[in-house]
Amino acid sequence: MAERGLWIAGAVALLVAAVFLGLGLRGNLAFVLELRALRLLGLVQVGVAVAVATVLLQTVTANRILTPSVMGLDALYVLGQTLLVFTLGGIGYASIDARLRFACGLLVMIGMALVVFLPLLRRRLSLTLLLLTGAVLGILFRSLTALVARLIDPNEFAVVQGASYANFSAVPPALLLPGLLLITAGVGVAWAWRHRLDVMSLGPDAAVSLGIDWIPAVTAVLGLVVVLVAASTALVGPVAFLGLLVVALAERLTGTRRHAVLLPAAALIGVAVLVGGQATLQHGFGGASTLGVIVEFAGGLLFLVLLAGGRRA
């Protein structure tokens, strides 16, 4: 069942990508295809990064209804961008190189993870407490963002809004390459750790007993989550429930939590959901709605179903 599920996910992802590239081609083929290929590349990166980050976070926390946004990571990214607009002004913000902005955002997130989460881990606080801290920090960051947004010029607020809502149709082209490198590296590391992650999903005691040094291992995995979330947030903005939706679907489809299967399956489904959703929006609804809204809606609904069903929550 596991391998078959993986094949199905792969086939769907490929099909969806082909449809996305090929449907309703008109006009200058080379131009349209290049545009669509770049857009596809961005969506694939985000789908893979969010799916893998969610699997990793769920594994180390032994909790199936978590997504990285619960830890306030993407909220921090938005806060950083808002502060940049506040200090530099809308025009100043727009004139910084997108790659530089991306690097700054990434550094801020990793810095916060080091300052806030690492000491908590060192003191062997329970992951529940860690997540609660993350949730509270997330609220703090969102509130601070709202405060700063009230302080700035209304025109510049529009710039902030552009940065704080998921936007799948305008992936900044300058970020495609750095994002690709970062996400490929991160996913590569996660794949290399797949057996170790299987062991970690047994919980700290069993993992230590099987030779995992828990604190360094969890620190490394959370670091990886931060990098992946930062990369995907920089590309399209915060997506809260996408990871939850994708990982739950992947687990349903493959019937396993083994990372050798679950990681690729979740990544493929992530791609299929994003690319498929975007294709449907573009061709079915004429771009009348945004993918972010639909993904959040479906993911939120699933979150409630999981909570109500109490499936190993």
Partner: peptide, 19 residues
């Protein structure tokens, strides 16, 4: 840890989530 895991193991009473 890897070295110790070849000579010593423990089973706790609370066996945790199994998935």
């Amino acid at each position: 840890g890897r070295l110790l895991a070849r000579s010593l193991t423990i089973m706790r009473q609370d066996t945790g989530p199994v998935g």
